[in-house]
Design a protein around this nucleic acid. Structure first.
Lengths: 378, 378
DNA sequence: CTGAAAGCGCTAACAA
DNA sequence: TTGTTAGCGCTTTCAG
């Protein structure tokens, strides 16, 4: 037989001869087409033969070359996932879910983080395009329109959070920020707070705006007058939280709020830290509420009351939306909007205002005096 | 011209005709071979012609199909990265570095997390193999040998941490745990601590063992006698840290250590939390040292003294090692070992033991009494 | 220095 | 139901 094996002295024991569909076909005594059909579970294959083919496949430990498959079928079976910042614990939790669900459906995933840098975003998109992703979930809570053109031009299905261009192939995960944030404000109001500050996310992020709006609206619902001096812009990082709290302390020596809501948990963690530095107690001197409910929120000191937004729901909806576009007959437009719920999780960083408001005099300075710890509430 | 456009009434403005190397060739009046050579910067191309080709490429916004490229060249330009747990903040920081450096060299990356589950690990490996990765960095701090066979059999270059089979194509990043941990122990000893506990990682992880060994050795170097009751097994999670601290408290009501070293920062964060619950002060009642120096270690309450292991160094060494195997002429064996340094970062979770040892009586129970906060040290 | 042509491993008509 | 065959878009000999 094999006149092919040219290399003579090569003592390559076995692993040498390449494992492709032809090898299987030969070994199973069928054509490569039959092997292909078997692998793809085309029902017209004779069960007997299919069994034989599978046996060979298992025995030889063969699996198809995805590159070749993608090339010929035009289906890469890859989804892209673009996040703002992989080092913000919110995102790894999202990524994990996305990966699990995508893999479950036979997709591979390409993750990339933009770090809020448009240049990186543009590279990201290019990379995804080159790898021929079948869809991209853009979980950056905001994107510059022009960058989209590349993707839109190539008709890649897209999923956004909160807001997205109204074009075919695009889905949007609508997060109900208002629900959770209202719960937060009401919780604070019920505790007796009337003076509530808000540390927002970066103003350019649509989702940050939505959270701020939800806050203002909720305040009104509780007939609390908003105080502009108590709305501070943060940037969704811990450092930003620290800086924002610093400004809040500096600007309000006279009349401090008794509670602060934060646009995300990382910000809240920064706030907690800054308050610790200032020798202020949480929640006695100041109640703190976060947003996201990342895993560590459970163990901050004190554990953080926060608004939960399910990473898993987000991930599942994203994959579902993408699949709907890719796998549908290319006609009927699939659902555009998916709703994501938010809910308040009460832990220990919120409490009644007590004597707080009266006690704060010189809230600046890092050298806060030693102070009493809050009692564990459990 | 174009007799090709068969579809008549299709008013598809422009995006319809497919953009491939042939389109470019036609537009630039050269053969596809020349286009290919131009793109790949083969020096034999006439500069004039090259310029013309590039002009067309830019104008038409063309880029090559990576699938096809990979198929014919046998080079996917993809590296795999397997981590234990993407939700442990250590790993996202690693992933970020790995991504940046790999992309810089033209590689795409496939990330997957095993969650310490051998079944997941095995799926991971399979997925990577199917996507024809050119190399895999296995950053799980431990792997079951049998799973490797799949990868080894296919001659995929591999990078491990700490330890790995001695086979060609395999590199190992040797982390110098001892250096940083010794610094930690010496720091504690210098502060006056003689009673130091250690909360380890999962016993099955090689790296966890190494850290424990480094601890024991360092203790001896300071002529401190180790106390077996003060070596507790954790699992590198916050929950594990909480549980471990709980056991440490329960088992040592009589004589508590005055300091605890933890096998990683997540554990330390759990410990901090448990101590807060117990109403114990850090560092006055107990000093705490972490390991990893993840980003949040800066803002824990109090900020964590910890041993830094550079994610960036790890990432860079991993990519370098993989590239060395892939891009070398397939002869000369590339370097096998890469050294990674560790260093102590002193923050505020460590201090002198003071009167601590005498004061602890009933350290169980969650309802610790209100207590004095540590003075901010800055 | 450039072009023609042979595949890379697979899927999907089209025949049989 | 199965086999034959024509490519998917590109790289890479091998001639010219």
């Amino acid at each position: 037989m094999a006149t092919k094996k040219a290399k003579p002295a090569a003592v390559e024991n076995k692993a040498t001869e390449r494992m492709d569909i032809r090898t299987i076909a030969r070994a199973a005594n069928v054509s490569i087409a039959t092997v292909s059909r078997t692998i793809n579970h085309i029902p017209t294959v004779n069960p007997e033969i299919a069994k034989r083919v599978w046996a060979v496949i298992d025995q030889l430990d063969y699996f198809p070359n995805t590159q070749a498959r993608a090339l010929v079928s035009g289906r890469s079976k890859i989804f892209g996932l673009i996040v703002s910042e992989i080092t913000n614990p919110f995102f790894p939790e999202l990524i994990q879910g996305f990966e699990d669900i995508a893999v479950e459906h036979g997709y591979e995933i390409l993750v990339s983080s933009t770090n809020y840098d448009p240049k990186r975003m543009s590279h990201c998109i290019r990379r995804m395009l080159e790898r021929k992703v079948e869809g991209v979930a853009i979980m950056t809570f905001g994107i510059e329109e022009p960058l989209l053109d590349q993707l839109a031009k190539r008709n890649v299905p897209l999923v956004f959070i909160d807001i997205g261009p109204k074009r075919p192939g695009i889905s949007v995960l609508k997060v109900d920020y208002h629900h959770g944030i209202r719960q937060g404000v009401q919780h604070l109001a019920a505790l007796g707070h009337r003076n509530i500050a808000f540390i927002s996310g970066p103003a350019i992020l649509h989702s940050a705006q939505s959270r701020l709006t939800a806050f203002s609206t909720s305040l009104k619902e509780c007939s609390i007058a908003p105080n502009p001096a108590w709305i501070i812009e943060g940037d969704h990082t811990m450092e930003g939280g620290i800086a924002a709290m610093e400004r809040l302390l500096a600007a309000n020596a006279k009349k401090m709020p008794t509670a602060v809501m934060c646009s995300n948990d990382m910000t809240a963690i920064g706030v907690l830290h800054r308050l610790y530095r200032a020798g202020l107690r949480v929640p006695d001197d100041l109640s703190v509420v976060g947003f996201d409910d990342i895993h560590i929120a459970e163990v901050t000191i004190p554990p953080l009351t926060t608004v939960q937004m399910s990473r898993f729901d987000l991930a599942r909806a994203a994959v579902t939306a993408l699949r709907a576009h890719v796998e549908n007959a290319d006609d009927r437009a699939p659902k555009r909007d998916y709703n994501i719920q938010t809910d308040l999780i009460v832990r220990e960083s919120t409490g009644s205002p007590r004597a707080a408001a009266t006690r704060l005099r010189e809230p600046r300075g890092k050298s806060g005096r030693p102070d009493i710890n809050p009692v564990a509430l459990t």
